[in-house]
Amino acid sequence: MGNRLSKIVTRTGDAGTTGLGDGSRVTKDCLRIDCIGEVDELNSCIGVLLAETLPDAVRETLLSVQNDLFDLGGEICIPNSAYISENHILRLEEQAGRFNAELSPLKNFILPGGTRAASLAHLARSVCRRVERRVVHLGNSEPVSDFARKYLNRLSDLLFILGRTLNQAEGRGDVLWVQNKGS
């Protein structure tokens, strides 16, 4: 990668096209590039969350997710490739189960909020849901791995659980939704 990344300013995209990992060129507004950008945005949201003080287990989980998301971006960048596997999904399910076991059962809907770290986890979750929708949309017209879609679905669940976990770690409860019954 060193030689590939030694020149960052290439001017090859000045005409509104960009290169995919297979060497083909597409317009920068095509759905595949949109999905790659959305995955990058999600990874950046997780990077902001990682700038917070976090429990070690949460930090390790999120660092692993960031690497997975880089793989997912690569998978989308190279049509018909597959880097996300069932093992990735099983790992997310195991982590979600482990963190969720430490939380009280939900009896109400909760609002995204509480501590700054929990709020950032919820923001990442909502971005993850958007990425999932865009990848599903891409899959309606081009091949997309079932594992990629499942991974994003499980990741949004995990991020929800981590939001609750981070509030609990700081001694805060969930921010409960209170139905507005009008004035």
Rank of each mutant, 00 (worst) to 15 (best):
L155Y: 00
G47E: 00
V136N: 06
R4I: 10
K107V: 06
G23P: 00
S81F: 01
N140E: 14
A148T: 11
I89P: 06
R91Q: 13
S145R: 10
A169M: 02
D157S: 12
L49K: 00
L103N: 02
L72D: 06
K28C: 09
T17K: 15
T10E: 07
W177Y: 14
V175L: 08
G113F: 00
R98M: 11
N100F: 01
L49H: 00
W177S: 05
N43G: 08
S104I: 03
L162Q: 05
E86N: 14
R125V: 04
A96S: 15
K107A: 04
N140A: 13
R25K: 15
V136I: 15
K107L: 06
S104K: 15
T10Q: 04
R130M: 03
D22T: 06
F109L: 00
L162A: 05
S141K: 12
D22F: 04
G113W: 00
T12G: 13
A169Y: 00
V175G: 02
N167I: 02
L176S: 06
N108I: 00
S44K: 03
D40R: 06
R4K: 12
L72V: 07
P55I: 05
R116P: 10
G182H: 09
C30L: 10
R125A: 02
E93Y: 02
L42F: 07
I84D: 06
I76C: 10
V178L: 14
D34V: 15
G73W: 01
H88I: 04
G113C: 01
I84E: 02
L166G: 05
I36L: 13
S156I: 00
L166E: 06
H122R: 02
L49D: 01
T61R: 10
I46C: 05
R98D: 14
G173F: 01
N67C: 11
I76D: 09
S126F: 07
D14R: 03
N100M: 09
R172M: 12
V136R: 06
S44G: 10
L69H: 04
G74D: 01
Y83Q: 13
G13Q: 09
R172Y: 08
L155T: 04
L120Y: 08
G173D: 08
T61E: 07
L155W: 05
I76V: 14
E60M: 12
R164W: 00
G13M: 11
S44R: 04
R91V: 08
L20K: 06
L90T: 15
I36V: 15
V136W: 08
G16A: 12
V58R: 07
N180T: 09
V175W: 03
G139H: 07
